[in-house]
Simulated assay, not measured.
Amino acid sequence: MAHRLFWPVAMLAVLLLINLIAFPGFFSVQIRDGHLFGSLIDILRNGSPTLMIAIGMTLVIATRGIDLSVGAICAISGAVACSIILGSSDPGNPGTVAVAVIAAIAISLVLGVWNGFLVSVLGIQPIIATLILMTAGRGVAMLITEGQILTVNSPPFKVLGSGFFAGLPVSVLIAAALFLFAVVLTRRTALGLMIEAVGINPEASRLAGVRSRGLLISVYVFTAFCAAIAGLVLTSNQTAADANNTGLFIELDAILAVVIGGTSLAGGRYSLFGTLIGALVIQTLVTTVYTVGIPPIATMVFKAAVVTAVCLLQSPRTTELIDSWHRRAQLRRTLEASA
């Protein structure tokens, strides 16, 4: 019970049980035209953009930072891609879609460099540095779309958000690939240790030879990359670029997923697997709201309640009480055995 992933997993199990009780066929998965369909598949598909952004957010928070601009980067990424596709003579050409995707990612990486520059070079607080782009980013997206909702009819582009491969949604496969890449990069190399070192004590890590400035820029660039991919998936799923609504408040869901997963906002140790569980909790909670018939406008209230409950259960005081209970129980068993 003292493990930091115990309560998030327990909360996920409770939410799944509630859905099973309200809808007995909740766990059923069907195959239609070679594709998998069902409530569990919907949770994975709809939660993929949040997970993508939460992966990058985990690394940013581990460095004692935060990125509030990911939602705006999502909107910019989708706006750039749709503008290029609509401006071409053949929107259905895979080459055109490839150029649009590459351009959207490239511009997003530049925005990530901008965030990293403000934080690591100019020394601006991360919440302020990223708030600048969060505020201006949607305005930039509006300029790109000229204030219009750009509807795209491009089958190759639509595959990103609603396509299937090997029976699974493409968005789920993209999120899984991004997750595995982050795990291998940070847990199979020294990069993860350096990120934790910078988050725990930036000055000590600098004296130890860690180039914290370049590391911070790299982390914000990777987060922008994750946001760009998520923005392309969201825009593809909507088949339109909506500068006002694409990725709106997704940065809050990503932060909630990271916090639920046990990563401390004070920086240092982090858990990508915990973030995965947190993203599933967030999306399952949204699904539960619809399944049990609760008005959708109350979703934010239930998110807050779940996050509050998990954070209280994960708090140092709760962990201390659980450890104390275990010690007393062990002592009691020892006394009973000796008697």
Rank of each mutant, 00 (worst) to 15 (best):
168 L>Y: 10
135 T>S: 13
21 I>Q: 02
172 V>E: 07
159 V>T: 10
94 P>C: 04
55 I>H: 08
225 F>M: 09
261 G>I: 01
294 I>Q: 01
196 E>H: 05
106 A>H: 13
296 P>M: 02
225 F>L: 10
41 I>A: 06
122 L>G: 06
198 V>D: 09
67 D>L: 07
199 G>R: 00
56 G>W: 07
272 L>K: 01
262 G>W: 03
74 C>G: 07
97 V>N: 03
88 S>F: 07
76 I>T: 12
325 W>S: 14
206 R>M: 11
3 H>Y: 09
285 L>V: 00
54 A>Q: 11
113 V>M: 09
178 L>A: 09
25 G>L: 04
270 Y>C: 00
8 P>H: 04
286 V>P: 00
205 S>L: 07
5 L>C: 09
150 L>R: 07
188 R>A: 03
296 P>Q: 08
95 G>N: 03
286 V>M: 06
23 F>N: 13
151 T>I: 11
238 Q>G: 06
338 S>A: 15
44 L>G: 07
321 L>F: 12
289 V>H: 01
63 T>D: 04
227 A>C: 03
55 I>V: 11
144 I>A: 00
214 G>A: 02
84 I>M: 13
223 T>I: 02
33 D>K: 00
276 L>E: 12
96 T>P: 15
240 A>S: 15
308 T>V: 07
5 L>A: 14
166 A>F: 14
256 L>W: 14
195 I>K: 05
4 R>C: 03
92 G>Q: 14
164 F>C: 04
234 L>Q: 13
225 F>V: 03
79 A>M: 11
300 M>T: 09
335 L>P: 12
257 A>T: 09
241 A>W: 08
232 L>T: 06
331 L>H: 08
187 R>S: 06
295 P>K: 03
187 R>Q: 11
239 T>R: 08
20 L>S: 15
204 A>Y: 00
263 T>E: 00
147 G>E: 10
115 N>Q: 12
259 V>C: 07
120 S>A: 14
41 I>D: 02
287 T>L: 04
136 A>M: 12
39 S>D: 15
113 V>H: 06
331 L>N: 10
244 N>S: 14
54 A>K: 08
86 L>C: 04
204 A>R: 04
264 S>P: 05
312 L>E: 02
46 N>K: 13
215 L>W: 04
198 V>L: 09
83 S>G: 06
137 G>E: 09
168 L>R: 05
285 L>W: 00
153 N>E: 15
156 P>I: 02
338 S>M: 13
216 L>C: 02
93 N>K: 10
261 G>K: 03
192 G>I: 02
98 A>H: 05
320 E>Y: 07
67 D>W: 14
54 A>C: 12
329 A>Y: 08
160 L>Q: 00
147 G>V: 09
306 V>C: 03
21 I>P: 00
312 L>R: 12
167 G>T: 08
339 A>P: 10
90 D>N: 15
73 I>H: 08
57 M>L: 12
310 V>S: 01
274 G>R: 05
171 S>A: 15
134 M>K: 05
247 G>E: 05
267 G>I: 01
302 F>C: 01
258 V>F: 12
113 V>W: 11
28 S>D: 13
91 P>V: 11
290 Y>E: 14
188 R>W: 07
138 R>A: 01
154 S>K: 04
276 L>C: 08
